[in-house]
Amino acid sequence: MPDPTAAPARVAVTEEAAQLLRRLTGDHGPLMFHQSGGCCDGSSPMCFPDGDFLLSDADVHLGDLDVGLERGVPVWMSRAQFAYWSHTHLTIDVVRGRGAGFSVEAPHGVRFLIRSRLFTDDEAALLES
């Protein structure tokens, strides 16, 4: 049973996206996401082999996706983008269609995308504490 006083996760993943991430991990090794909200594919989450995208103090670690592997998939966002999205829960999903050429799923005819919802008042209060 989840702890009702624990802060909610900021990120989640659909089962379809988790299946793809397991397959991509087999091809590329450990993976990571970065959500910049800027160039290339707009606000699509970009998936890279872990470490291929250089992070800095300008990035915020939102959490790790549990995709059923030994290691979770870390999700990062630029601090500037986080200022706008800090009140939302993000779920990484996958849909058919070409995304950005830099993201590892692009050659498979699918692309990752973000589905979002506002945190409830109770969730927001837990995040602030």
Rank of each mutant, 00 (worst) to 15 (best):
P4C: 08
P4V: 08
T5P: 00
T5C: 00
A6G: 02
A7H: 05
A7L: 08
P8W: 00
A9C: 00
A9S: 10
R10H: 01
R10G: 00
A12N: 11
A12G: 15
V13R: 00
V13Q: 01
T14A: 08
E15H: 07
A18Y: 06
A18D: 11
Q19S: 14
L20K: 09
L21G: 04
R22P: 09
R23G: 07
R23I: 11
T25H: 08
T25L: 03
D27Q: 13
P30V: 10
M32C: 12
Q35H: 09
G37A: 11
C39L: 13
C40L: 15
P45G: 11
P45M: 07
F48G: 13
G51M: 10
D52E: 13
F53S: 14
L54V: 13
L55N: 07
L55M: 13
D59C: 12
L62A: 05
L62W: 05
L62N: 04
D64F: 03
L65R: 01
L65F: 02
D66P: 09
G68Q: 05
R71E: 15
G72D: 10
G72T: 11
V73M: 09
V75D: 09
V75E: 10
M77T: 10
M77S: 05
M77I: 14
S78P: 03
S78V: 07
R79S: 15
R79E: 15
Q81Y: 13
Q81S: 10
F82G: 03
A83K: 09
W85S: 14
S86D: 08
S86A: 11
S86K: 14
S86G: 02
H89N: 00
L90R: 08
L90Q: 11
L90D: 06
I92P: 06
I92V: 14
I92H: 03
V94R: 11
G97I: 06
G97Y: 06
G99V: 06
G99E: 04
A100L: 00
F102K: 05
S103L: 08
V104S: 10
V104D: 12
P107H: 00
P107V: 03
P107L: 02
H108K: 09
H108G: 04
G109M: 02
V110E: 02
L113T: 12
I114R: 09
R115E: 14
F119W: 01
F119M: 01
T120P: 04
T120R: 02
D122E: 13
E123G: 01
A124C: 01
L126G: 11
L127S: 06
E128Y: 00
E128P: 03
E128T: 09
E128I: 02
